[in-house]
Computed example of a mutant assay.
Amino acid sequence: MIPYGKQDITDGDIKAVIDVLTSPHLTQGPAVPKFEQDVIRHCNAKYAVAVNSATSALHVACLAMELGAGDWLWTTPNTFVASANCALYCGAKVDFVDIDPRTYNMCPVALEEKLVNAERQGRLPKVVVPVHFSGQPCDMRVIHALSEKYGFGIIEDASHAIGGLYLNEPIGNCRYSDITVFSFHPVKIITSAEGGMAVTNNEKYAEKMALLRSHGITRTPSLMTKPMEGSWYYQQVDLGFNYRMTDLQAALGGSQMSRLSHYVARRHEIAKRYNRLLADLPVITPWQSKDGHSAYHLYVIRLKLDEIGRSHGEVFEALRAKEIMVNLHYIPVHTQPYYQNMGFKLGDYPEAERYYAEAISIPLFPALKEVEQDYVVASLTELLQQ
């Protein structure tokens, strides 16, 4: 069986975790701040807050930006539901912006058109969440310029994108956003088993997110309402959550950070080979913007259905029958029953829906062997040229 994605665990990773297991601190020890510093150094950001998932990072990021009842968050329909759900957790409302047909990211033209109409209606978003789908960065310079004109904040959902570049600078430097969020799920670029992180250049946001990840409790005297009563003393000054990352997870993530550039380079090698091997098949291979260097979390093909004798579903299931565990990223969020109950319907975001009707994520991970890649291509060739 060939999975679509897979973690790579080395002896060094295992040693890093064992070192924590044999230390006094399984959680709330030195490994988490060290991992945060590793990511800060890579991204050239000022602050990082490690949490137990990217979903948690999105949630505390929204709260740090004071998203709440009566506010709007806009994101893309081509994402995992967490990119939208984070607004609902805060009591805010959600809307979507259709995707660009080449990048599959939030379309800047569609965003601007929607902003013009929203301004007339008095319902501009407080926060926009562009998602760097598959690791390819959104057109952040344009989105940032629109934020300055229309007054919204930006949270980059870079769950797919650590290790990627935008305009030759690392994704996560927050030059064009308020906060950037990463995921360290096992199939992502690097893993901490489960885990996420928010990075920012805004000290106030970092302080708020750090407070919220641990029950809203602080031991910092400057954040307290009265003097400390002793070295044991703490105060709950906000309603927070148990979103902490353990030292075990942070040790694994920190160990993996040392191989981040290798992982991204390897993903590009595999993607380049796919581009060559699939060139004559009735599929659309991933287009890459000259402004970005993708982290290549995913390699998504789109079937040219008018040129093949099988349906999208038939190709998908036939590949799985050959033990190629392809996947589909993503079912458009607005088509989910929970969101349709809010009034969203088929036809609202046609580019995202067209993409969904044709897309298949084929295997891409650093340890993918050429013989496995050849088998994937041979299987596609057999299915699509009949």
Rank of each mutant, 00 (worst) to 15 (best):
19 D>T: 10
255 S>F: 05
26 L>R: 09
16 A>C: 08
8 D>N: 11
132 H>T: 06
356 Y>A: 12
299 Y>T: 08
359 A>R: 10
230 G>S: 06
370 E>Q: 13
111 L>V: 02
364 L>N: 07
140 M>C: 02
281 L>A: 10
32 V>R: 04
195 G>Y: 04
193 A>K: 03
164 G>K: 03
277 L>M: 14
287 W>R: 04
247 D>M: 07
86 C>N: 11
21 L>A: 12
92 A>I: 04
20 V>S: 08
125 P>N: 12
52 N>H: 00
151 G>V: 07
297 H>C: 13
10 T>V: 07
133 F>M: 11
162 I>E: 05
366 P>Y: 13
253 G>Y: 00
117 N>Q: 12
310 R>S: 00
331 I>T: 12
363 P>F: 03
33 P>K: 04
115 L>M: 14
193 A>R: 10
139 D>E: 13
152 F>N: 05
178 D>N: 15
286 P>V: 00
102 R>Q: 12
273 R>Y: 10
348 D>A: 14
2 I>K: 08
291 D>V: 00
195 G>I: 07
23 S>F: 11
379 S>G: 13
250 A>M: 03
7 Q>P: 14
307 E>C: 12
363 P>L: 03
21 L>N: 07
239 L>S: 13
197 M>A: 05
84 A>L: 04
165 L>V: 02
378 A>C: 02
382 E>M: 09
105 N>L: 10
85 N>Y: 14
251 A>D: 03
8 D>H: 12
191 T>K: 04
67 L>M: 12
294 S>Q: 06
